[in-house]
Simulated scan of single mutants.
Amino acid sequence: MRVAFVGKGGSGKTTLSALFSRHLARSGAPVLAIDGDINQHLAEALGHEGETPAAPPLGAHLPAVKEYLRGTNPRIPSAESMIKTTPPGRGSRLLRLLGDDEIHARHVRRAGGVPLMVTGEFDESDLGVACYHSKLGAVELYLGHLLDGPGEYVVVDMTAGADAFASGLFTRFDITFLVAEPTRKGVSVYRQYRDHAREFGIRIAVVGNKVSGEDDLLFLKEQVGDDLLTHLVHSPWVRAAEQGRAEGELEPHNHHALNVLREAADAHPKDWAGLQRHAVEFHLRNARAWGDKATGADLAAQVDPDFVPDPTALD
């Protein structure tokens, strides 16, 4: 299952991404965490100490990622003609989660006991000349070529706010957890996500965070209604962990909330056809808007009719 954590800046989405990833890993489930935030703090939140794990960031190696994934697909003559929404077709290299392939071997390192990939920071050389979504394009391509199986998880810490809707990346997930504090600002991003997600049939669930009492919980219920899945209370354990001195275990209520998140992620079967349908739709949108002009090619021709990247495609 592909899981995204989104929310307003400061809502705790990176902390929740790390808690959920570690919760899955400690259960023995195959899990890959991906830091897709413009502020790259997921490794630290996972409990990594010292220098950032020395895995080359996906965003800095986008041409190589494209070259590998296009494989022998005759509809994609070069990596230069491949854009972030280019869907796989016959001949493309499809990936198994944490498989024995070039992408995972080059870009995955462990942080706090969890396999981690990073998009890379938005650095000074990018200012005024680049968009962070170009770095996220590598994540979009990775997920588009990934065949994750039952009981396998990809957990992505996304950019803050509603920025994910600037590309088709938001359609790459099986469920999106929107982390919201019990404040008006905390739930403001929810309304944007709710409206966009409903248009495309995307599953979203709100996770209340930093809830300190019944008034906070009532506020969230009034604001988001049935979309409120669960909530986490103020956590001395998390604060201690952020200060590098955590001992013992996460509070029982918060541990239960993580179980609820996993149950929600597992509740629906994978819709491979739906994922491919959204991928093609956004690819054609990008082709018309800018892709054809930028590449000098007819990118609609990259779509392989009737091809669905599901586990049977590996055969």
Rank of each mutant, 00 (worst) to 15 (best):
G201V: 01
A164Q: 02
L143K: 01
A297L: 01
P57M: 04
A138M: 06
V156Y: 04
F165T: 05
H107C: 15
E263P: 02
E251M: 09
H61M: 03
S92R: 02
G59D: 03
V187E: 10
K270A: 14
I83D: 06
R22S: 14
V211N: 10
H255C: 12
G12A: 06
G120Y: 08
V3G: 03
G9R: 03
L261S: 14
A205T: 04
R93Y: 11
A18W: 10
R109K: 13
A25L: 08
R194L: 12
N259H: 08
I204C: 03
H107Y: 12
T295L: 12
Q40S: 11
G225S: 05
G291P: 07
D310L: 05
S92P: 13
D216G: 05
G274H: 03
A313W: 03
F20D: 10
D226P: 04
D100V: 02
I38A: 11
A54T: 09
G113F: 12
G120A: 09
K270Y: 08
D292R: 08
K270S: 13
K293S: 06
L136R: 08
P77N: 02
E44F: 12
A205G: 12
V179M: 06
P87F: 00
E251Y: 03
A265S: 11
G248M: 05
V224Y: 05
H234L: 14
L141A: 01
M117E: 13
L314A: 04
M158D: 00
E102V: 07
L94K: 07
Q223K: 04
K13I: 14
V156L: 15
T312D: 15
A287G: 01
K270L: 10
G36I: 13
A79Y: 05
G149V: 00
P305H: 08
V118G: 11
D37M: 00
L46K: 09
A205E: 07
L58F: 05
L32K: 01
G168I: 04
L217Q: 11
G7Y: 14
D174C: 01
E49N: 11
E49D: 12
E67A: 09
K270P: 00
A300N: 14
H283T: 09
K293H: 07
V154S: 07
P88F: 01
L24V: 10
A294N: 07
Q192F: 12
P252M: 04
A18Y: 11
D216C: 14
S134P: 01
R70V: 00
P57D: 04
I202K: 01
H268Q: 06
H133I: 08
I175Y: 02
I76V: 13
L250S: 09
D195V: 03
G9W: 06
M1G: 01
R75L: 15
E199L: 09
G244I: 14
D216R: 10
S21H: 06
G201S: 03
R172W: 06
K221G: 14
V154D: 11
L261W: 13
H196W: 02
P30Q: 00
S212L: 05
M82S: 15
F165D: 07
G113C: 13
W290A: 06
V31N: 09
P311Y: 01
S17C: 13
K84H: 00
R203E: 07
T86R: 13
